[in-house]
């Protein structure tokens, strides 16, 4: 069969997928773009062309800037925490010890727990009056007073990050572990003979194998963290005093609670753009890292 015909056949087989994606993603995206230039409301009338007004208003509003910084803090801290915990866990599980298989099996549990259930669980744990965390730290004698974990801006964001990291570090750990198991034994042994210490061994022997897979995990988790909605919706709904309001929550509020579909659309596209730029930068970093490690 000729190359052109093969390609034609391949396109034909791709067609259902492409049709689906065009209809459910492509068209809505274009329509969001159109809406973002209008003052359309979610129901009822409206929809007059307003040019770049929505963008100008959003980008200059303190609501947007505050929310952007909250989202960035959430994404950076929780992803960093997940990467560090994940790699440490993988290093541990790469050692031989009794119960290792079981422990690796346990890792899948937080990951499999639905996000909403995870959020609900932690909300109960953080309950200011009857929560397990308050009971624990009080009974251990660490504090005397019950704390309002989700009621103080600083601790609320931290509490959310911990809940998010608990669910997601196992994914990083599993990916890192698989990468570690690809490090040939001979290399490790050889470096041992050379008298390399554990840290220099990690740095020069193990790390190069980890970088690629970890970068992929990093990109995936960062994108997800930037889009975060579920866990915040269930745990704080953006409170207290909007200190945990992330971009996705802000769009929901704008487009659905306040019914300003137009300005909600402009904000959503700003987020999409930010995530795309972020992912682009990461991809470049990955290419660089892949180039240097090989």
């Amino acid at each position: 069969m000729s190359g052109t015909r093969l390609t034609m056949r391949a396109w034909l087989m791709m067609l259902p997928l492409l049709v689906v994606m065009t209809a459910i993603v492509g068209w809505p995206l274009l329509d969001t773009l159109r809406l973002s230039f209008t003052d359309a409301r979610l129901v009822g009338t409206g929809g007059d062309w307003v040019g770049l007004d929505n963008y100008a208003r959003m980008l200059s509003s303190s609501r947007f800037l505050d929310t952007l910084s909250t989202t960035t803090i959430f994404a950076v801290v929780s992803v960093t925490l997940e990467m560090v915990l994940g790699v440490l866990t993988a290093l541990l599980l790469n050692q031989a010890f009794y119960g290792r298989t079981l422990l690796r099996a346990l890792l899948i549990l937080p990951w499999a727990l639905p996000t909403v259930v995870n959020a609900t669980l932690w909300r109960l744990i953080y309950n200011p009056q009857y929560g397990a965390l308050n009971a624990l730290v009080t009974q251990l004698g660490l504090t005397t007073d019950y704390q309002s974990w989700l009621g103080q801006p600083a601790s609320a964001l931290t509490a959310l990050i911990i809940a998010d990291a608990w669910k997601n570090f196992p994914l990083v750990a599993l990916i890192a572990l698989a990468a570690l198991q690809m490090v040939p034994r001979e290399i490790t042994s050889a470096s041992l003979v050379d008298g390399a210490g554990p840290f220099s061994r990690f740095r020069h022997v193990t790390l190069p194998y980890l970088v690629g897979p970890l970068m992929v995990a990093l990109v995936l988790r960062t994108i997800e963290a930037f889009k975060v909605f579920d866990i915040i919706w269930v745990m704080t709904r953006g409170g207290p005093a909007n200190s945990t309001r992330t971009l996705s929550i802000l769009v929901y509020q704008e487009a659905f609670s306040f019914q300003r579909a137009g300005s909600g659309a402009s904000l959503a596209l700003i987020i999409a753009l930010l995530v795309t730029v972020l992912a682009g930068v990461y991809t470049m970093l990955i290419r660089k890292a892949a180039g240097s490690s090989s």
Partner: peptide
């Protein structure tokens, strides 16, 4: 109660009836 800033009505009821 400082936790009031986290309370909805049912939380208030829980605290009061406890």
């Amino acid at each position: 109660n400082p936790n009031s800033k986290e309370f909805l009505e049912e939380d208030v009821r829980n605290v009061f009836q406890n």
